[in-house]
Design a protein around this nucleic acid. Structure first.
Length: 594
RNA sequence: GGAGCCGUAGUUCAGCUGGUUAGAACGCUGGCCUGUCACGCCAGAGGUCGCGAGUUCAAGUCUCGUCGGCUCCGCCA
């Protein structure tokens, strides 16, 4: 099919010296123009790259006149002959830099009004305006590359999973609201006035039902929805590579997951990941790194000092230990020259996580400089220095508080110091599995146990009897996968027995009646020959962002939302007609501000 | 719900302890230019300083509020 009498022969970025002498037809956008009064150069761009078009008045005066009107981002078609560039005018920065196309035909498909911002890679533009004109932003080579790599990543995952015998099954987007977990997005039902669907937080229950059906291996690359506050790595709708397998235990799921990641890295940037990935228990991750998603590209590990200082005269520490708290230290190697202000900044950092202060010791050759050292006995000091491997030039930090505050704040401090000292190799991809998670987590606000992963996660077999009396001691058959300090996926072996599932609901304080209303279909399904099964989901946006070294997943999503959940391009969410609301039997309440 | 940073021309930014007519670069418009490639040269247009109060003789600048963007805490099974 010919467009405007032209049929494309090449992408702009694909013209090479092997095409010299050929007539080519190119379609694309004017990236730049250089009008020398006589000869005019146009940089014509499409998704594959840029090629230089030459309009020479001695070739065709009329076309040259038309070309003088071309401006930035006009969409045009060009026919012309490829030739080698004259000596001394080769541009080594372009793939097509050795050649140029002498145009004999020019077709302007669309002119372009004054742009809201330059469509140029080298001009930094505010994200707000980039998102409003996202279609222009996506014309930039980096954004095109990001989405192309994303596409290749999805393809690689699909290819691998298909080769492994997985079957892709679509699950409903209009589904049932579930009380546990994230806040649901609700969709009102017209046919059942006053009732609502929910968008899925994940296909969790459906994929378990598919195991009951006997599909054995399921996967889906699919959107999930969570109505929670946004972050650089969190959007209200995001994409998961979701999978589930029957007759498996933890290692089977972990091996398949490593295979997907291996395939995706190879299929996107040609990177060979090292397998198998490291493994760490939850407890070890917390006590060594202060995080269940440790960045293991560098050391700077935390050390437990509770046993050394539990009887100390330093009241601040002793009181904490007496109340069941812990005392940890962190040796910032060679950081003795940190200024007062730098230490203040770090104190402000840990305060975000609830830390009431940040004690420190500077280790000099002949003395210790510190506001707290005078409170300790000689033995305590020696024990601390030894535990922290302290040497002259080191700066030691201390935190005494509840385990949560100590881990959160020292974990954050570790990352900040790691960043300050540039301890992370930006080119490294460091994977680690976190295993042996607690099954439950105490919810202070609601005064009850909550599932740390989700309520369908199987307890470790040997902990089954602890379910009633010591829920805090029960370990889950759950695992997370972490890359460079970012959680990129997680999963578990599920409960496949309805009696165990009932016990689980009970431990969560969900009454039998409530469980029946919310999850009755699952409990029922588990009664009909449910196989042992388990699975995992990978956060696809995060994975691609890490592969591309992008700081935000917005840069790997075509049309993302702002922190308030607004789409700058379409202005969603928006008000709807009264008529639409009537049909749905919905009345909108005025918010306080109105 | 909370904390921090930011908001000045189409874009990216500068604008000091408050002080005449708010600047630069790029872009845009017009003109010149036959080998440039983020072309070059000349001329020109372009601003409710996010919005609203307040302090002051005087506010882009100080204060308070508000809106928006970003980062983070809470939240995210």
């Amino acid at each position: 099919m010919a467009i405007g009498g032209l049929k494309r022969t090449h992408y702009c970025g694909d013209v090479r010296t092997s095409d010299i002498g050929k007539d080519v037809v190119l379609f694309g956008w004017v990236q730049n123009w250089r009008d020398h009064g006589g000869v005019i150069f146009i940089d014509l761009k499409d998704r594959e790259g840029i090629v230089q078009i030459v309009f020479d008045p001695s070739v065709d005066e009329e076309i040259h006149r038309q070309a003088s009107k071309l401006r930035s981002q006009y969409c045009i078609g060009v026919k012309g002959r490829v030739r080698h560039r004259p000596e001394g005018t080769v541009n080594p920065n372009l793939k097509t830099g050795e050649v140029e196309v002498v145009a004999d035909t020019l077709k302007v498909f669309s002119e372009c009004e004054n742009l809201p911002f330059p469509v140029e890679e080298y001009v930094h533009v505010n994200e707000e305006i980039r998102l409003k004109y996202r279609y222009l932003d996506l014309r930039k080579p980096t954004m095109q590359k990001n989405l192309i790599i994303r596409s290749k990543g999805a393809f690689s995952a699909r290819k691998f999973l298909n080769e492994q015998g997985f079957i892709e099954v679509e699950t409903p987007v209009l589904t049932k609201s579930t009380p546990e977990g994230a806040r649901d997005f609700l969709v009102p039902s017209r046919l059942s006035p006053g009732k609502f669907y929910a968008l899925p937080q994940s296909p969790q229950l459906f994929k378990q039902l598919l195991m009951v059906s006997g599909f054995d291996k399921y996967y889906q690359i699919t959107k999930c929805f969570r109505d929670e506050d946004l972050r650089a790595d969190r959007q209200p709708e995001f994409t998961q590579i979701d999978l589930e397998m029957s007759f498996v235990e933890e290692n089977d799921v972990m091996e398949i997951t490593e295979g997907i990641i291996e395939a995706v890295f190879k299929g996107t940037i040609g990177y060979e990941v090292k397998r198998p990935f490291k493994r760490l228990t939850y407890q070890e991750a917390m006590s060594r790194f202060g995080s269940d998603k440790p960045d293991m590209r560098f050391g700077l590990e935390l050390k437990n000092l509770t046993d050394i200082v539990k009887d100390t005269n330093f009241k601040v520490f002793r009181n904490v230990v007496e109340k069941g708290g812990i005392v940890y230290g962190l040796n910032a190697k060679g950081c003795i020259d940190f200024s007062r202000k730098e230490i203040d900044d770090l104190t402000n950092l840990v305060a975000i996580y609830g830390a009431k202060g940040l004690a420190w010791i500077k280790v000099k050759k002949s003395e210790l400089q510190s506001p707290i050292v005078k409170f300790f006995s000689k033995e305590e000091i020696e024990g601390i220095l030894k535990r922290l491997d302290a040497e002259p030039g080191d700066l030691l930090f201390f935190m005494a508080d509840t385990p949560k505050v100590v881990y959160d704040s020292l974990g954050a401090l570790r990352l900040e110091i790691g960043k300050k000292l540039k301890l992370m190799d930006e080119n490294e991809f460091n994977f680690v599995w976190i295993t042996h998670f607690p099954l439950f987590e105490w919810n202070e606000d609601e005064n009850r146990w909550e599932a740390m992963h989700h309520p369908f996660t199987s307890p470790k077999e040997e902990d089954l009897e602890l379910l009633d009396k010591n829920p805090e001691k029960v370990k889950a058959r759950a695992y997370d996968i972490v890359l460079n300090g970012v959680e990129i996926g997680g999963g578990s072996i599920r409960i496949h027995r309805s009696d165990v599932q009932k016990k689980m609901f009970k431990a969560l304080g969900i009454s039998e009646e409530e469980a029946q209303i919310k999850f009755g279909f699952l409990i029922e399904a588990l009664k009909y020959g449910a196989p042992p099964h388990g699975g995992l989901a990978l956060g696809f946006d995060r994975l691609i962002a890490l592969i591309l070294k992008e700081k935000s997943i917005r840069d790997v999503i075509a049309f993302p939302k702002t922190q308030k959940g607004v789409c700058m391009l379409t202005d969603a969410p928006s008000e709807v007609d009264e008529k639409q609301l009537m049909e749905l039997a919905i009345k909108v309440r005025k918010t306080k501000k109105e």
